[in-house]
């Protein structure tokens, strides 16, 4: 088990997430994809944290920085999910759907040319 493995795993998960963000139609699935991206970042944080713990006799910050950052990311995701739920529900109430491509009220319509 090497550091590279974790980084590659993270990379693949990240790519899946990016692909999801690009191709998904509904906002909620895009949010799922964003969670995947965040998790890939977390994998990197934790893996590098362990790597630094084992290789360096650095300061406390060097040894636990990754964990703290991972926790911050998780908290961020929780907050994001809470706000996201509210946004989705209000979107759904207004448009009766949350397909992102169909919600473009701010865009200028074609007839205004």
């Amino acid at each position: 088990m090497e550091l590279e493995w974790f980084v590659y795993l993270s990379l693949i998960l990240f790519s899946i997430g990016i692909l999801g963000v690009l191709t998904q139609k509904t906002a909620i699935r895009i949010l799922f994809s964003v969670e995947l991206i965040l998790n890939s970042a977390n994998i990197n944080f934790v893996a590098f944290n362990s790597y630094l713990q084992s290789t360096t006799s650095g300061t406390v910050i060097d040894q636990y920085m990754g964990w703290v950052f991972a926790m911050v990311v998780i908290a961020l995701a929780a907050a994001e999910a809470a706000v996201g739920l509210a946004i989705f529900i209000s979107l759904y109430r207004n448009f009766r759907e949350i397909v992102v491509a169909n919600i473009y009220e701010l865009a200028e319509s074609e007839e205004d040319e």
């Binding site: 963000v21 690009l22 191709t23 992102v100 491509a101 473009y104 701010l106 865009a107 200028e108």
Partner: peptide, 8 residues
Amino acid sequence: DGIVGDYA
């Protein structure tokens, strides 16, 4: 075109 996906 106002579609976020395209911007992304």
